[in-house]
Design a protein around this nucleic acid. Structure first.
Length: 487
RNA sequence: GAUUUUGUAGUAUAAUGGAUAGUAUAAAAGAUUCCGAAUCUUUUGAUGCGGGUUCGAUUCCCGCCAAAAUCACCA
């Protein structure tokens, strides 16, 4: 079910992980949104290029590298028996622990809060390491390569479980130097200016933004420098009509500045850039804080959801005849259906509360409820050997009110799709699909289908059921959720 | 302090300015000799506060209160 082609190509960036720790619940929302919005844009007739930019360099990466070098004892994911991203994350935490201890020591020795970080030996070692990295020191680069390779292997597992994929992956180690030319260009156009200390700025106060550094006094790039460079490079590489950044709302200000700057530089496509700004995920006990260990790890979450799906399915005992492989696939489909729907049904712009206990409840407004409805319809269709190519003749009068409700709802699907794509909101599709499933269940409760004796009516109801299952499957697909035929 | 965003039943959420504010969950009571009960039916319960615009405001504007984010030559 795709709308007519728009002839446009849109790039969607999402995920954007750091390579110093495993993915957590916040990344999950990001990834699911990115995938789903990409699907929506395709359904709305666009070509989509899905990209990821991996933050694989910088101080934070050096922290885990240093901790590994100092305390790692050549541990590997194989020797430790843990995923590579978790192993690296372990050393990032280790660094933090040691660093805090060092700071505390310095303070007891009478060093002020302000001076303590400057006197930290660990932090000096990190800075040295970063310098060496930038100078292409062989040993440091080797360690960096090794540890990042571990992380990528770990990410791949998580991405695969979440059904996340990309057309192109960018690495910041390749792109972080981009942008200096853009700055020169901006200077030539007098859009940027230089301060006495040599740093380069743009003045956006007329646009109700601030002055912003675009190049440091020592000539090195800042965050926005590389973003400028990356944006221009991408536009050259892909001939895109638009660009969507899936990034949390804490960076609202950054993207306002980025887009405005590109616009001032005269890039026409800059007006078609969009920051898909989503709200933070919070837990019942409050915000996730890595320091306090309240972060929900993505892999743990996936496993817990899987276990819950397995348990519920076994309790209901409807899967006789499933092979072990089929069961595994089914548990995976149901658990990811639950997780994805739980997250995507909320308006992206709003912060959302993730309650683990509620997320594994598969009754009510949930993914498995919708999947169940699909499986139920498929069961009905199997019974009469109705296939996708069937066309049954019917003429009906006096529709049942439940039938009318379903038909009216189905009729809205294309416009909901259009709206969802236009507003980048999978939540509209999620709510539509849920409503459709609910309306169908209400219909099914009051109307006979297979057992209906009036052949016209029976054919009509089979056709309607088939249409509903197709739209449910399509809606779920847009959310990145699979629709099982039996569950 | 400044800027931005967000405030809807106990909880989580939905409503291009439109009719009795929809849904789920929690609680209670029901429905299957019959097509799949991960279902359906019924009951209880909400727009932070105060103004304004409008025939009409959850929605738009102003003030207050509350929460969060940003305001780095970090990313």
């Amino acid at each position: 079910m795709e709308l007519p082609s728009t002839g446009k190509t849109i790039m969607v960036e999402y995920s954007s992980p750091n390579t110093n720790k495993p993915l957590h619940l916040g990344h999950v929302r990001n990834n699911l949104l990115g995938v789903s919005v990409s699907n929506l844009l395709v359904a709305a007739g666009n070509k989509v290029v899905k990209v990821n930019i991996i933050n694989d360099r910088g101080v934070h990466i050096c922290k885990s590298m240093l901790a590994y070098q100092l305390y790692g004892n050549n541990e590997t994911p194989e020797s430790a028996g843990i995923k590579g991203d978790h192993l690296v994350g372990k050393y990032y935490v280790e660094f933090d622990k040691r660093y805090k201890a060092e700071l505390a020591e310095l303070k007891t020795a009478g060093v002020t809060d302000e001076d303590a970080p400057k006197q930290s030996k660990l932090m000096q070692q990190v800075s040295d390491m970063l310098r060496k990295w930038e100078a292409n020191d062989a040993e440091v680069k080797q360690l960096w390569q090794t540890m990042n390779t571990w992380v990528y292997a770990g990410f791949d597992v998580t991405y695969k479980n979440l059904g996340v994929s990309f057309d192109k992956i960018y690495y910041e180690s390749n792109t972080y130097l981009l942008g200096k030319e853009i700055v020169e260009e901006g200077l030539a156009k007098k859009i940027f200016y230089t301060k006495p200390d040599g740093s380069t700025w743009i003045d956006l106060t007329a646009d109700k933004l601030d002055e912003k550094v675009v190049l440091r006094a020592d000539g090195t790039s800042v965050y926005i420098t590389q973003d400028l460079g990356t944006a221009v490079a991408r536009a050259k590489e892909f001939a895109i009509d638009g660009m969507i950044y899936t990034v949390g709302n804490e960076q609202d200000y950054h993207f306002k500045v980025l887009f405005k700057t590109l616009e001032k530089l005269g890039y026409t496509w800059a007006t078609n850039m969009y920051h898909l700004s989503y709200g933070m995920v919070e837990l019942p006990e409050g915000k996730m804080k890595s320091r306090e260990g309240t972060v929900v790890d993505a892999d743990d979450l996936i496993q817990e959801m899987y276990n819950a799906a397995k348990q519920t399915t076994e309790e209901l005992g409807k899967v006789d005849g499933f092979s072990a492989d089929e069961l595994h696939t089914l548990y995976h489909q149901i658990s990811m259906g639950a997780l994805k729907y739980f997250i995507l049904r909320v308006d992206p712009k709003k912060k959302m509360l993730f309650n683990p206990a509620e997320s594994i409840d598969f009754n009510g407004n949930t993914g498995p409820f919708i999947q169940y409805t699909h499986a139920r319809i498929q069961s009905i269709l199997r019974k009469v050997e109705y296939t996708d190519t069937c066309t049954l003749p019917y003429t009906v009068h006096n529709l049942h009110e439940r039938e009318i409700a379903v038909i009216k709802h189905l009729y809205n699907y294309p416009s909901v799709l259009q709206d969802a794509a236009k507003t980048y909101s999978p939540a509209l599709v999620a709510n539509f699909t849920y409503e459709l499933a609910k309306l169908y269940n209400q219909f099914y409760n009051e109307c006979q289908v297979v057992k209906e004796e009036n052949i016209d009516l029976k054919n009509f109801r089979l056709t309607l059921s088939h249409q509903v299952s197709k739209v449910i499957a399509n809606g779920l697909h847009l959310l990145g959720v699979e629709a099982p035929y039996r569950m």
